[in-house]
């Protein structure tokens, strides 16, 4: 919709180079337009909440950013890098981490090993083949465990974790990658209220050092985050601004909040 970066609330100066820049992205599957001219700009250090009804294209947007889906048209830049030309591994190496909508961890590995595999390091097979676990890696993994509240599960198989714990472990995996930008798809799905609250806090802490895009349905959750909100509908941006601002937008009320 609106290609120019608009800094309305808590924004950064316009002169600053955006971290992520999506412009006019379209993706269609068998003629069905999952994304339709989507544009979105994210400043460094920003946390953004993306909401929208089911099927609005939120997950597809993440697919485009992470190289899983190639857009039919449009521009996707991460700083200087053209995301449409890179594959998943290259994009991950650039510093974009992603949590899937369905929590995905390595179930047959211990929680600790999950993090160990994710720690930022040389990923080339030849290096990994002769890598041994150094003390500093152990420390970092343990630090992350602490942060995602899984220290007690350190040695357990990830498959044994509860749904919510898996969500956290996956966020922990993202942190271990030390990405500049985290894409988090519905982190609070299937969580108790207490867990949701803890997740909110976790994301806030993460946002102290990294940029985040959160996709979420849960309005309480989004409200608690108190960040700029982008509303997607049928593959394009319907409204953008503070939650209060967008929830007063009559179109948003009609397609989403008013249901």
């Amino acid at each position: 919709m609106n290609a120019a970066p608009v800094a309305t609330i808590g924004g950064t100066p316009e002169s600053m180079q955006p971290l992520l820049y999506l412009d006019g992205i379209s993706v269609s599957f068998d003629g069905f337009k999952a994304l339709n001219g989507l544009s979105l700009v994210l400043d460094p250090g920003e946390m953004r909440a993306v909401i929208g009804p089911n099927g609005a294209g939120k997950t597809t947007m993440m697919d485009v950013i992470t190289g899983k889906t190639r857009p039919d048209s449009g521009k996707a830049m991460f700083r200087e890098a053209d995301l449409t030309q890179l594959d998943e591994a290259e994009i991950a190496a650039l510093g974009i981490g992603r949590k899937f909508q369905k929590p995905t961890v390595f179930e047959m590995h211990s929680v600790f090993d999950n993090l160990l595999l994710a720690l930022k390091a040389d990923r080339r097979p030849s290096r990994v083949l002769f890598a041994s676990t150094r003390a500093i890696e152990r420390e970092r993994a343990d630090g992350i465990l602490e942060m995602v509240r899984l220290t007690g599960m350190r040695g357990r198989m990830a498959g044994e974790l509860s749904h919510g714990q898996k969500q956290w472990l996956e966020i922990g995996i993202l942190l271990a990658q030390e990405p500049e930008l985290l894409l988090v798809d519905e982190p609070a799905a299937g969580m108790t209220d207490a867990e949701t609250e803890q997740t909110t806090e976790l994301l806030r802490r993460i946002n102290e050092t990294r940029s985040v895009i959160v996709v979420e349905h849960d309005m309480t959750f989004v409200r608690a985050l108190a960040v700029k909100v982008t509303v997607l509908h049928e593959g394009s941006v319907l409204a953008e601004g503070s939650l209060e601002h967008v929830s007063n937008d009559p179109r948003v009320i009609e397609v989403y909040l008013g249901r």
Partner: peptide, 16 residues
């Protein structure tokens, strides 16, 4: 094993 159990997760971690 990570590739076996969750190939795209592994890919998104930056492993080729």
């Amino acid at each position: 094993i990570a590739i076996r159990d969750a190939e795209s997760r592994t890919r998104f971690l930056g492993y080729r």
